[in-house]
Design a protein around this nucleic acid. Sequence first.
RNA 1: GUGGUUGUAGCUCAGCUGGUUAGAGCGCCGGAUUGUGGUUCCGGAGGUCGCCGGUUCGAACCCGGUCUUCCACCCCA
Length: 456
Amino acid sequence: MKPSIPKGTRDFSPTEVAKRNYIFEVITQAFENFGFQPIETPAFENSKTLMGKYGEEGDRLIFKILNSGDYLNKVDEHILKAKNSKGLTSKISEKALRYDLTVPFARYVVQHQNDITFPFKRYQIQPVWRADRPQKGRFREFYQCDADVVGSKSLVQEIEFIQLYDTVFTKLGLADTVIKINNRKILSGIATVIGAQDKLTAFTVALDKLDKIGKEGVIKEMLGKGISESAIKKLGPLFGLQGSNDEKLYQLKELLRDSDEGIQGVDELQFVLENVTKLGLQSSNVQLDVTLARGLNYYTGAIFEVQTDKVAIGAIGGGGRYDDLTGIFGLKGLGGIGISFGLDRIYLVLEELNLFQTVTLPKPTVVFLNFDKEYELIQLKAIKTLRENNVKCELYPDVAKNNKQQKKQWKYVSNRNIAYVVSKVTNNEMFTLKNMNTGEQQQCTADELLKTVQNL
RNA sequence: GUGGUUGUAGCUCAGCUGGUUAGAGCGCCGGAUUGUGGUUCCGGAGGUCGCCGGUUCGAACCCGGUCUUCCACCCCA
């Protein structure tokens, strides 16, 4: 059998793992620095926890897990005969792989509400699975790095999360990241003002595509979704929105003066943007973008999306505020806000921009060649001391029985780019230490060996 | 889910309009040279040409299906 892995999944080799871990570390440190605590949830949930939470499209993309045992045996004859996948799925599959981290988190909060002190700030870094068709920056198994605060309605959180984004991307060396921000209340207000509130979702989805399909495309899609021509005419000023964040806010206030909700959205944004400006950002830019909609319907206030103009890959992060995330699981009125980092896409961006230079593959500093069984114990003793002093080292496992095998050991250290090699040992515990970069060799005691190697 | 694209030795790729034993570089193995590796030279192994079926006297090259890759749409990190 030819070995293979499922579509949209990947193996990660040592260098890739090192690079991924580096990103994980930067994000984790930032999360903890901002006061978040880690949780983890199972890779799979009960289907009813996930199904119906991400829209019809989402349901299709959820990986379902077949029941154990003879799962068809218990299904009614007429359901089998109907050959209706949707109807059958719920009978033969009661578990499903996690689709994102937000819904499992909502479930977690409700389930553990008595043990949680609110506001609860949690972070979670785990893989999620989607039965999507893979393409660049899109996989069927990928990691999300989420940070959320539940139980607080304070707009300070919006400011904090923008700072958090800025911190992480600055540390990763990814400069000029664009943090796009918008507010659902503004979108809702606009829909009201133009008299299309009943079509809010269709309206926002179409508007979201402005930079992709242009004004004409958006209008065409809106017409197709049943939004009237007169309503679209009123959107004129929206398409022409330009200038600084402040100028946009001013124009929006004009446009939305008949909508209390819309005005509230503008005020919220203004508060956030003002304070972000006062605090300052290290390397990112915040950009007010009224066309930013994001698909997830549970957002009710601020919405974020992070992009880099240096690599064409879509969003590398996103998030927003939700008023009632836990309501679906029976805990009403608990609001929150959260953001997510797309690890795999960030990886691709850093790789393309050559920003992994500081990441080194973990490997031994010293390798002891194994030419003589008689000296193995002396070498292991020296190795033990080195390790106790945090020097990475190892003994080549097999004893070389001939010249050929010795050569193989030299090749091993060459190929792995090992800095120091101990090639000879004497009875009085003197080691021959070779610096592989300079080619210099010296005789030394175990103590001297440690000192030389520690200076690296 | 829709449309397109890709698939040849471990890796990166050649292979002219279908025609005799499918090639290269790197890697691997063996040998020579080299102070103990990274150099150079010589030799060798390794491929059901993604898989299944079809057209043909004959297919890696044509057709169909399927899987995989990448891309666009949908949607999204």
